[in-house]
Write a protein that binds this DNA or RNA. Structure first.
Lengths: 205, 205
DNA sequence: TATTATACTGTATATTTTTACAGTATATTA
DNA sequence: TAATATACTGTAAAAATATACAGTATAATA
C-alpha cells in the first residue's frame, strides 16, 4: 500500500471521523469546511489520490459515495475490505485497481498469518490439494518462502499458484494434479518473481 | 422501542444491507428501486416512521443523511466472533458452550449467505469435494435444504457432514470419498435432524 | 363515526452534490 | 529541463437528491 502525504492523511482521517460520527460519508464541501479548504476541488483531488492509492473507493455519480477500503485507525473493530484479484492482466502489477474484481469485508488476521489480498483460483492444477476453481486463496505479500509453501509466482507475464521448491538455481513449481506438469525454471536463464504465499483459503458453497 | 410494521422492517433492512454493501446509506430512489416502490415518497414516509420510532435518525437537507440508531440484526462490516465447533459431545446441542473450541473474528456475511458457526471437519469422507480434515465449514442453521446441498445432520448422537438426498421416506447422506459408504436412513424407522447447511469454507495453510 | 396511522402513486421543485474546467504555485522525479 | 505529483482557489453546469404537495385506499383507534 502506497504511502499517504500529510494532507491525504488528513482527508482520510476527516472522512473516517465524519463517518464514525454521522454514519454516512461527508461531501466534498463538508471536507473543505472541516479542513479549511476554500474550493471543493481541493477535497476532490485528495479523494482521487486516496482512491488511486487504494485507501477508499468512490462511487461515481453518487452523493457521499465514498467507502473506506483500508482504515487508518480501526474505530469499530478490525474488518477491512480485502481485495479479490481475478484475472491478472499481462504485465500489470497484481494489485492494480483494474485487477480487483471485488472486495470482501473480513478480518486480515482471520488466518494464523495476516494476508494482503485474495487470489481467485483459475483452473484445476491444485485440485488434489483441495483447491478448486473459483476458490479464494488468501495471499500474504512476501518473498520469504520455504520449500513446500504454496506460493504465487510471476513468470514472464503469467501468474501462477503452485507449491514452491528451490534448489540453487533450479526452481520447481509443482502442481497438485497428476495431469499437470511441474514447471521447471533455471533462474540463470529466466526470471521468476515470488509475489507471496498462501496463508489460507475461503470458498463459497 | 416501538414495534415496526412489516414494510418498515423491510425498509430498515434495505438500508442496513445497502450500508453494509457500499459503506454509505441509500437514497429514497434507491430504496424504492430495491423494494419495488414507484414513488420516492413511499420511501420517505417509511423513513419518517422509522425515525419517529427511534430506529434511525435523518439529517435533514443532507443527501443519504440516514444513520442507524438501532440495528435489527448485526450485519456490520465489523466482525463478529464466530464460534468454531469441534467434537460434538454425544447428546448435547451442537452450539452448546462446551462444544465451542474457539472463536474466529470474521464477518458473518463474508459468504453469499450468512452463517451461524464453523464446524471443524473430522475425517476424510468429503475429501473429493476438496474438504480436508480440520477445514472449517461455515454452517447456516436451517432445515430448509435441497438435494445436493452439503448439510450437517444429526443421527442419533452423531453429527455428520455429507451431501443431502431425500426421496420420500428415504434419506441418503452421501460422502465424497469412494472409500466411504453412503449412509441410508429410513425416516420411518430412525430420526434424522438437519442442523444446517454449508455456505462456505475456510482453511488455514 | 371521525381521526389517525399505514401504505402507497405521481409530479414538481428547490437544494445539494458531483465534477469538469481554468488557473496558480511548489516540489520532486526523469 | 521538462514532466509529473502535490496542493490548492474559483466558477459553473449538470446531475443527483430531498422533500413538499396533491391524491387514493385500507385498517386500526378513539
Amino acid at each position: 500500500m502506497k504511502e499517504l502525504t500529510k494532507q491525504q492523511t488528513k482527508v482520510l482521517t476527516c472522512v473516517e471521523v465524519y463517518l464514525n460520527k454521522t454514519g454516512f460519508p461527508p461531501t466534498r464541501a463538508e471536507i473543505c469546511k472541516e479542513l479549511g479548504f476554500k474550493s471543493p476541488n481541493a477535497a476532490e483531488m485528495h479523494l482521487r489520490a486516496l482512491e488511486k492509492k487504494g485507501y477508499i473507493s468512490i462511487q461515481s455519480g453518487s452523493s457521499r459515495g465514498i467507502s473506506i477500503v483500508k482504515r487508518q485507525q480501526s474505530f469499530m473493530g478490525n474488518s477491512d475490505q480485502m481485495p479479490v484479484i481475478g484475472l491478472v492482466a499481462a504485465g500489470s502489477p497484481t494489485l492494480a485497481e483494474e485487477n480487483i474484481e471485488k472486495r470482501i469485508s473480513c478480518d486480515p488476521n482471520m488466518f494464523k498469518d495476516s494476508f494482503d489480498y485474495f487470489l481467485k483460483v483459475k483452473g484445476l492444477s491444485m485440485i488434489d490439494a483441495g483447491i478448486h476453481e473459483d476458490d479464494l486463496v488468501a495471499i500474504k505479500k512476501t518473498t520469504d518462502v520455504k520449500n513446500g509453501d504454496l506460493v504465487v509466482v510471476r513468470l514472464e507475464d503469467e501468474v501462477t499458484l503452485k507449491y514452491f521448491k528451490k534448489d540453487n538455481h533450479s526452481l520447481e513449481l509443482i502442481p497438485a494434479n497428476k495431469d499437470f506438469a511441474t514447471i521447471k525454471v533455471d533462474l540463470r536463464e529466466q526470471d521468476a518473481f515470488v509475489e507471496g504465499k498462501s496463508v489460507g483459503l475461503i470458498r463459497t458453497h
